[in-house]
């Protein structure tokens, strides 16, 4: 099934700081829900392991993440693909960072993805909710990075 997710979040840091964080595998590992490991395999290329639970099914997910059309610190495209026991998924997100009136960063994203396998069938009615929930968890964690700093 296809998933679309759009939104924007304000983060209490400068666009430059935010940019550095979202391309830092250490920060990403802390912020991405269920992320067990995240290793850089090349410039803008990451390997990631997730442990997720959706509806009645749970399992691990091995994925590749790549950043392209990088335009620091304004925008990039994040492409994700991977598979696990839950199914196979892939998608991309266009991410743009702008500076708000208060000098803080405003990050907006437009993402579309496709999910196949068990999760597509079992979780279809809640998958959008799960996706939104995971996105919220991610940004909550990301904000925490800068609240602590």
């Amino acid at each position: 099934m296809n998933i679309e997710l759009n939104g924007s979040e304000q983060i209490n840091t400068s666009p430059a700081n935010l940019w550095e964080s979202v391309i830092d595998p250490v920060v990403l590992q802390r912020a991405i829900p269920g992320c067990i490991s995240m290793t850089e395999t090349g410039k803008g290329q990451y390997q990631m392991t997730l442990e997720l639970k959706v509806a009645a099914v749970g399992g691990s997910f091995e994925g590749a993440v790549s950043l392209s059309e990088m335009n620091p610190p304004d925008s990039c495209i994040i492409t994700v693909s991977g598979s696990g026991t839950l199914g196979t998924g892939g998608g991309n997100a266009t991410v743009a960072i702008t500076e708000g009136d208060d000098g803080n960063a405003l990050i907006s994203y437009q993402a579309q993805g496709e999910v196949s396998g068990l999760v597509a069938g079992v979780g279809q009615r809640i998958l959008m909710g799960v996706a939104k929930h995971l996105a919220r968890q991610f940004f909550t964690a990301l904000k925490k990075e800068f609240a602590a700093a």
Partner: peptide
């Protein structure tokens, strides 16, 4: 089935 060929009704929930 959905347009990707995934069976949507695969448990008694659906």
């Amino acid at each position: 089935y959905d347009t990707n060929g995934q069976l949507l009704t695969q448990s008694f929930l659906d």
